[in-house]
Structure formats: structure tokens, C-alpha cells
Design a protein around this nucleic acid. Structure first.
Length: 579
RNA sequence: CGGGGUAUGGCGCAGUCUGGCUAGCGCGUUUGGUUUGGGACCAAAAAGUCGGGGGUUCGAAUCCCUCUACCCCGACCA
């Protein structure tokens, strides 16, 4: 490909809206352009990278017996009604009507569509297990797209779905999928990725893992132990917290004027936040049911855990009015005044297993000292006592007690054991060897393709641009002709390009004859791993200059041997990415 | 949905507070010339509904009202 004809200009200055590295370089390098919030077009360079990522994913999916299919982006709403998700999923599912007023959706994931296929195509145990996958467009009407290709509304995703006769077969396959993902991300040249335990959220099912590219600009917070054996999304992470009871002291009401937050109360009474109990009101966003959560003042409620504890699909903060309706005073609300038959009460272990806490007195300007759950709340056995705490930096690891570290990550893939959530709801069944009908046991496996491209860029770049792994670089070699009109440089460069291409090397050829610095800067901004410079200076000695992007100093190669040498370098670079 | 911000040629910005010549600068683009190893120089040129609508005024990029789009933080989110 000649640079003079390549569509997609490089930008000298950072676009003002781009904040993260990958967003800046994707725009500046001429890889992608924004069309609307969270909606991008890919330019030729970007499309080449994406195609290569897809090819690697495809190979690895086929390796674990996947069969590629393609399902539609537009789906009838009734399919989503069958699974129940038409009503349970929020506004990120884009709903609309066709010209006949029939409700439709833009698919944000394809469990419904694939089950619709599977239940007619797969009917016998002899056909199972089976895995179907596609690499296709998803649309999610995200509340807040951000960071370029990292969180977008329309994106390409590889989604795979496996069908099994039983849980143990799913589990075996799940492990294969996990290994497959390790291979994929290794081959993509992704540095610093890990798999972690995750929250299965709206997908249903039990066991799930997320593959995270560790990166400060990531949106997820991950808890890892020092030896990295414990790795979990903060949404589900737990820690080996130790709480101690002491001799209960008499309950005592104290004035705490203008102290409505834990911070204020602790400061006013001169106690540690850990000596207080924090009351937080939530509401089941669907049913409106009020939920009272009590946790020690030095912890934060983990909403995902609370959601699981009360089996609510969605929570929201309760408004002051609903809190008053049950006779509580916002800011001074107290468990002492709560009727467990009216409000669902969830108590974190930190509060249940500590003694003599300061809690609200349910009266503006007053708190109570020395609250002890069993003594002061006789109906404590009508409450749920469980872990709803958010892990903090340094909390002790469940496995070895070492302090947990919080790191950020970009979720580039995930795998779920769905179980029979969809097959039961949508009647996706098979007949066993005895002619008995059973729901299929399902797994699903996703990878965000564009997000993977952005994540690689985040993990592999310098100040001048991306440093692509050879496996997904838009081109493998970048040939730059300095002074193409002088001393036969242009001819020599073109001959070199031909030789490389005949060896199967993908070449981007800068034939523009611009100033050297200009072309070098463009080359860095594009980030192709191997660069060859043809110039009068070295051509006089029958040589060209070779430089590895992001590597050391340039070296000289004999012109006649250059193509073969580059071919070898590329092969070695590929080999280094082999799992 | 809450908070903050932005909108002026392809890109980045100034001008707006304090209304007033033909709306300016850098980059990029085109043409000609001189250059050529880390974003050259000279000369000429093309390119703008100043986000949209309404209003105030002799006169609006600038003041007022309103709408929209985009970005950041939060909420939310496989």
C-alpha cells in the first residue's frame, strides 16, 4: 500500500475530545473517526487491525470446535419477551417499532437469537455438545460512552454460545474456553491481561470470569492478592475480615448537632469511623421495595453484593420521602426504629460482629452509643446477615491473608456458565438416550474486538504512537523512501517492496518524498513494527536501514538480503507471540 | 438522570466580558519555486450557515430566550 493513496490522515495535534492514549492515537494515526457519541467509523488502517484480531479469534474458536454463524442485529421484541429480558433489561436495550408497528430491538447480545437457532437445529444428545459463535455488531444504548473505542454504543463483538447435556460437560468446555481466551490474548500481543472472578449480573448463571487488560484508564476495579492467586472484580471480591466483639456497654443517646454523615459523627464524638454503624437505604428499582442496609462506618456497601443478597435485579438509592414514610429520619436513621416486617434489612458482618457502635437515634441531632445487634435489636434473626462490604485497598486476602491490592482494568472478554436460564425460559431442549427431554445447559463467551484493539494500544505505545504487535499490526513492514527521485532511491525502494510482498510480507510504502522527519513521525504514529529506510546515504553502500518500532537503534542491512531478513524477523516476532 | 464544560474553514485555537471596518492566527490543503535524515522556507490561492431557531438593536460570533450536539466527572452498565 502506498502512503500517497492511503485514506485516513494523520493529525499533528491531539483532538480536544480525546483523553486516553488509545483514543488519541486511534484518531491521530488515522485509524478511526467518531460519527456520533460512542459510534465510530473505522478507516482502512483500523479495519485491517480489526480484521486481524477477528482472524485470530476465529482460528481459536474453530480450534475449540466452534462453528461460525451470523445472527441479525435487528431482532423482534417477542424473542426477548420469551426470555423475560425485554422487561428486565434497562434502557441500554434499544427498542423501536417497524413500519407495521411491531416492536423490535437492536440486539445487545444474542442469547435469545442463538437459542432460537439451537432449539430447532439441536434436538438430540448425539448433537451435543455444540458451540456456535459469530463476530458481529452489537448495539447498546450506553448511558455514557467514553474513552474512544473502550466504551462505545455500537461495536463488534465475538460472542459464542455452547450447548451441553449436563453441567459437568459445560464445566469441561468452560475450562477449554478459558484456555482458548488465554491463547487469543497472548496471540494478540496483549500484555498484562488476567482472568478474574466476576459478577454474572444480568446474564444470569453462576460462575463467570472476566478477562481484564490491566490499565490505569480501565473502568473496572480489580482486587488482586500479592501473589496474584486471588483475582476478583471488586463487585464480587471479598476479604478475610476479622471482627471482634467486646463487652457490651449501656446504650446511650448523645447529642450530635449538625452531624448527619459518618464523617461528621465520628469527628464530633472523637471516635474512629470503624466504631460507627452506617445506615443506607436502597430501593428495589423494579418493585419499589425498601431495603435497609447496615454496615460499619469504615466500609462502603457493595451494591452488587446487596443486589444478590436481596435478589433484586436493580437497586436505586431510596429517596428521603420513602425513608420518612417508614418513620425514619434521613441522616439519623436508625436500625433501632426499623420494623423488619416492613423493610428488608440486610446487615453486613462488619456491623453484626462488632460491638458498641455509634448508630443513628432516629431523631435529628442525636445518635446512640454502644449499639450491639443481638441486645438492642431483638428481631435481629429476621434480618439477613451477610457480606455486603466493598473490599478496600489492603484488606486481607481470603487465601493467604496478604493485603489485597486494587488495580484498574479494561474488560476485554468474559466467559459465563449460563446453566439453563435461557434454555428453560425459551424451551431449548434435547432428548437423551432414553427419549427423555431436558433443557440444554449453556455457556456463553464474549470478546470485545474494538475494545481489544484499544486495550493493546493502551498497553503498547510510546509518546509518538502505538507499537503494534506484529500479529495485529495493520502492516508488518513500513518502507520509507527518502528522496525517491535521487540516486535511484525510489526504484530501489519499490523493488524492495515487491520483494517483500512476494515473500508474503504486508508492506506500507511511504512514497511521498516528504521531509525525512515528517515521514518518520507519521511512521511512528502509525506504529508498524518493522521499518526500512531507503536513502541515498546507505544505498551508496548497497544497504538499507532497519529499525524495530519501539526497539533499539537502527541497523544496516544489505539491500539484496533485506527482504529475507525482514521475513525472518517477522516470523520470529510471530513465534514470540505463540502461546 | 445529576454536576461541570465546549460549539468560530479539514484539525487546533483567538475574538464574546465591554455589540461596530472585509471574522483572525497556527497546522493542513492547492499551485509555483527553493529544499531534503526526526514534523523546512518563499510566494500565491481555495476553503467559514461563527451549532440551530427566535428576540433586542441602526448594527449581533459577541447581549437575551430557547433548542441541539459533543466532551469530562458521577449514577448506570455482559
Amino acid at each position: 500500500m502506498r502512503m500517497s493513496k492511503l485514506v485516513g490522515r494523520r493529525l499533528k495535534e491531539d483532538p480536544k475530545d480525546a483523553k486516553t492514549v488509545s483514543h488519541k492515537f486511534l484518531l491521530r494515526g488515522g485509524y478511526a473517526r467518531s460519527v456520533s457519541t460512542g459510534i465510530y467509523s473505522l478507516l482502512p488502517l483500523g479495519k485491517r487491525v480489526i480484521s486481524k484480531i477477528e482472524a485470530i479469534i476465529r482460528e481459536e474458536m474453530n480450534r475449540i470446535d466452534g462453528q461460525e454463524v451470523e445472527m441479525p442485529v435487528v431482532l423482534p421484541a417477542d424473542l426477548w419477551m420469551e426470555s423475560g429480558r425485554y422487561d428486565s433489561v434497562g434502557e441500554e436495550l434499544l427498542r423501536f417499532k417497524d413500519r407495521n408497528d411491531k416492536p423490535m430491538v437492536l440486539a445487545m447480545t444474542h442469547e435469545e437469537a442463538v437459542v432460537q437457532l439451537a432449539r430447532t437445529e439441536l434436538t438430540s444428545y448425539k448433537q451435543l455438545p455444540a458451540m456456535l459463535y459469530q463476530i458481529q455488531t452489537k448495539y447498546r444504548d450506553e448511558a455514557r460512552p467514553r474513552a474512544g473505542l473502550i466504551r462505545v454504543r455500537e461495536f463488534t463483538m465475538k460472542d459464542a454460545y455452547s450447548f451441553h447435556t449436563a453441567q459437568d460437560d459445560l464445566e469441561k468446555y468452560y475450562d477449554r474456553a478459558h484456555e482458548s481466551y488465554d491463547r487469543i490474548f497472548k496471540r494478540l500481543g496483549m500484555k498484562n491481561f488476567i482472568s478474574i472472578l466476576s459478577n454474572s449480573g444480568m446474564m444470569g448463571g453462576k460462575i463467570s470470569h472476566e478477562f481484564m487488560a490491566l490499565c490505569d484508564c480501565g473502568e473496572d476495579t480489580i482486587c488482586v492478592s500479592r501473589d496474584r492467586k486471588y483475582r476478583a472484580n471488586r463487585e464480587v471480591a471479598s476479604a478475610d475480615w476479622k471482627f471482634e466483639k467486646s463487652e457490651p456497654l449501656p446504650l446511650e443517646k448523645v447529642a450530635t448537632p449538625d452531624a448527619a454523615t459518618i464523617e461528621d459523627v465520628a469527628a464530633f464524638l472523637g471516635v474512629d469511623r470503624a466504631a460507627t454503624g452506617k445506615a443506607v437505604f436502597y430501593q428495589n428499582a423494579i418493585t419499589g421495595e425498601l431495603i435497609f442496609a447496615l454496615i460499619r462506618g469504615d466500609f462502603e456497601v457493595n451494591e452488587a453484593k446487596l443486589q444478590n443478597a436481596v435478589k433484586a435485579p436493580e437497586l436505586k438509592f431510596a429517596d428521603a420521602e420513602s425513608i420518612r414514610e417508614i418513620g425514619c429520619e434521613p441522616g439519623y436513621a436508625s436500625i433501632l426504629a426499623i420494623d423488619p416486617s416492613k423493610v428488608k434489612i440486610v446487615i453486613d458482618r462488619s456491623a453484626a460482629e462488632s460491638s458498641n457502635l455509634v448508630v443513628g437515634a432516629n431523631e435529628p441531632g442525636f445518635h446512640c452509643r454502644n449499639f450491639n445487634l443481638e441486645r438492642d435489636f431483638p428481631r435481629w434473626n429476621e434480618t439477613v446477615i451477610t457480606d455486603i462490604a466493598t473490599v478496600r485497598d489492603g484488606d486481607p486476602c481470603l487465601l493467604d491473608g496478604s493485603p489485597l491490592e486494587l488495580v484498574r482494568g479494561i474488560e476485554i472478554g468474559n466467559i459465563f456458565q449460563l446453566g439453563v436460564r435461557y434454555s428453560e425460559a425459551m424451551n431449548c431442549r434435547y432428548l437423551d438416550e432414553n427419549g427423555q427431554s431436558h433443557p440444554m445447559v449453556m455457556g456463553c463467551y464474549g470478546i470485545g474486538v474494538g475494545r481489544a484493539m484499544a486495550a493493546v494500544m493502551e498497553s503498547s505505545h510510546d509518546d509518538f504512537g502505538p507499537i503494534w504487535p506484529v500479529s495485529i499490526a495493520p502492516y508488518q513492514a513500513h518502507v520509507v523512501a527518502l528522496l525517491p527521485g535521487k540516486d535511484g532511491c525510489g526504484e530501489a525502494a519499490e523493488k524492495l517492496v515487491d520483494e517483500l510482498e512476494s515473500l508474503g510480507v504486508e508492506v506500507l510504502y511511504d512514497d511521498r518524498g516528504e521531509k525525512a522527519g515528517f515521514m518518520f513521525n507519521d511512521a511512528d504514529l502509525i506504529g508498524i513494527p518493522f521499518r526500512l529506510v531507503v536513502s541515498p546515504r546507505t544505498l551508496a553502500d548497497g544497504e538499507v536501514e532497519f529499525k524495530v518500532r519501539g526497539g533499539g537503534e537502527a541497523v544496516r542491512l544489505k539491500l539484496a538480503e533485506a527482504a529475507g531478513a525482514i521475513k525472518k524477523e517477522i516470523a520470529a516476532a510471530f513465534a514470540a507471540l505463540e502461546p
